[in-house]
Simulated assay, not measured.
Amino acid sequence: MQIFGVDIGGSGIKGAPVDLDKGDLAQERCKVLTPHPATPGAVADGVREVVEHFGWTGPVGLTFPGVVTGGATIRTAANVDKGWVDTDARALFADRLGGLPVTVVNDADAAGVAEMSFGAGRGRRGTVVLLTFGTGIGSALFTDGALVPNTELGHLELGGHDAEKRASSKAKEDHDLTWEHWARRVRKYLAHVEMLFSPELFIIGGGVSRKAEKFLPLIEGIKAEIVPAQLQNDAGIVGAAMHAAKS
Results as ranks from 00 to 15, higher is better:
H243T: 09
A72L: 09
G5C: 00
E213Y: 08
Q232E: 05
E213H: 13
R210M: 14
M1V: 10
G112S: 06
G58C: 13
H161Q: 12
L158N: 04
G123A: 08
V208N: 10
M195F: 12
I3T: 04
V105H: 04
N106M: 15
I222A: 07
G207I: 09
A235Y: 00
A183W: 09
F215I: 05
D24A: 15
I203A: 00
D162A: 05
R122M: 14
R187E: 14
A110M: 01
V6L: 04
I74M: 08
N106F: 03
I74Q: 14
V51G: 06
G221H: 09
G66Y: 11
A167S: 09
R29A: 13
E157W: 02
G10A: 08
S198I: 06
T63A: 01
K172N: 11
D107H: 03
T132G: 07
R96P: 11
K246F: 09
T39S: 03
V47D: 07
W182F: 02
V208A: 14
E49P: 13
K223I: 10
V193H: 10
I237G: 00
P65M: 14
D176C: 12
V68E: 02
L153Y: 03
E49D: 15
K246V: 08
L20E: 00
A120Y: 01
H243M: 06
G12P: 00
L190P: 06
A16Q: 02
L158A: 06
T34L: 15
S247C: 15
V193A: 11
G12Y: 07
R210C: 08
A16F: 03
A114N: 05
G134W: 03
F197V: 10
L218C: 12
R90V: 11
D107A: 06
G83L: 05
A120W: 00
V105R: 08
G9V: 04
T76E: 07
G145A: 10
V208H: 10
I137K: 05
I74V: 15
V80Y: 07
K211E: 15
E225A: 12
S117M: 15
I8W: 05
E115K: 07
G121M: 02
V129R: 01
F54N: 02
L33P: 12
K188S: 00
K14D: 05
E52V: 09
A94D: 07
S168C: 04
L25N: 00
G236L: 05
E115D: 01
H192Y: 02
W182K: 01
H36V: 15
L216R: 13
L25F: 03
L231D: 02
F133E: 01
K170D: 13
G206I: 02
P35N: 08
A77E: 06
R90Y: 08
E52K: 09
